[in-house]
């Protein structure tokens, strides 16, 4: 009875929330961001190209290094895909552990999730870099663990914790009627979970999961701090190779910002689109 009275006032709220979601209009278009960055790039380019006539122009320098930087960026993407795969697999297991009927498993999984969720990404990255061995042996076979792989594992830890929360949140957001209906039809708990609950959750999990992927992709530059040769490290090396010219700093950093923007912005747009689509369908 308490429930129905709560619902009778909720429509007012739901209406508002629904409107907020539908009105969640990222009205800027892709070209806004591109233009802003291009302006940034060009102004610094022009002003400095004029002040340093003896050296090669900023644009030439940027073009010379662009292939290398793009290669570095591809490396970032490789790291992001691997870290996402590892994090999603382990996070899904951890998330299911969080809704396990066994209290001990539930508590442990909850704690692990909270621990890695509350830790800064950079600290977890350091953690993996310093505490994982550079090689390990399986059946006498030595398998080397290069730095980039360690960084990938380090980045997958916070991904795991966040995926775990996404899974738990999605399962808990389903109305309990679904569980009850399945139970009344004599489904076992395992069957209910895999055949009824999880299929419905996939839709709810997709937008936050994509959002997490974008965050992870942006976090891959952290690997530069621990010495992995990704785009940020290469940018630093390129700037050093050009003799530390200060007029190159803004264009080069802008370029890095730009490639990340071009990659992550469509993901963000798509996430918002899916959120709206699922919100309308309920």
């Amino acid at each position: 009875m308490k429930h129905t009275s709560a619902q009778s006032i909720l429509p007012v709220l739901l209406q508002g929330k629904g409107k907020a979601l539908n009105g969640f209009d990222f009205s800027p278009k892709l070209w806004h961001g591109v233009i802003l960055l291009a302006v940034c790039l060009l102004t610094s380019t022009i002003s400095f190209a004029q002040s340093a006539p003896a050296k090669i122009s900023v644009i030439d320098a940027l073009f010379r290094w662009m292939p290398l930087l793009l290669q570095g960026f591809v490396f970032n993407l490789v790291i992001s895909v691997f870290a996402m795969a590892i994090g999603t697999a382990s996070g899904a297991a951890l998330g299911l552990g969080q809704i396990s009927p066994n209290v001990a498993i539930r508590k442990v999984c909850w704690f692990v999730t909270q621990f890695f969720r509350n830790s800064p990404w950079l600290v977890l990255l350091f953690f993996a870099m310093f505490l994982l061995p550079f090689e390990f042996s399986v059946f006498g076979l030595k398998i080397p663990l290069p730095d980039w792989l360690k960084a990938t594992v380090g980045l997958s830890l916070p991904v795991m914790a966040n995926v775990s929360e996404i899974v738990r949140g999605a399962v808990n957001s389903l109305p309990s009627g679904q569980w009850e209906a399945a139970e009344s039809l004599a489904f076992s708990r395992r069957q209910t979970l895999w055949e009824i609950i999880l299929p419905q959750c996939v839709k709810r999990m997709l937008p936050p999961w994509m959002n997490l992927y974008a965050i992870l992709t942006m976090a891959t530059v952290l690997a530069s701090i621990v010495g992995v040769s990704e785009v940020m490290t290469l940018t630093g090396q390129a700037l050093a190779a050009e003799g530390g010219r200060t007029d190159l700093l803004a264009p080069f950093y802008s370029f890095v910002l730009l490639i990340f923007f071009i990659y992550c912005y469509p993901i963000a747009r798509w996430t918002v689109y899916l959120e709206q689509k699922f919100a309308v369908k309920g």
Partner: peptide, 27 residues
Amino acid sequence: RRIINGYIQIFRNTPPLVQLYFFYFAI
């Protein structure tokens, strides 16, 4: 509105570390 939205999108969709470098080194 466009400038504010542009600001939001740029800062949300680029790595904060590169933003920090951009501010500290470039600007």
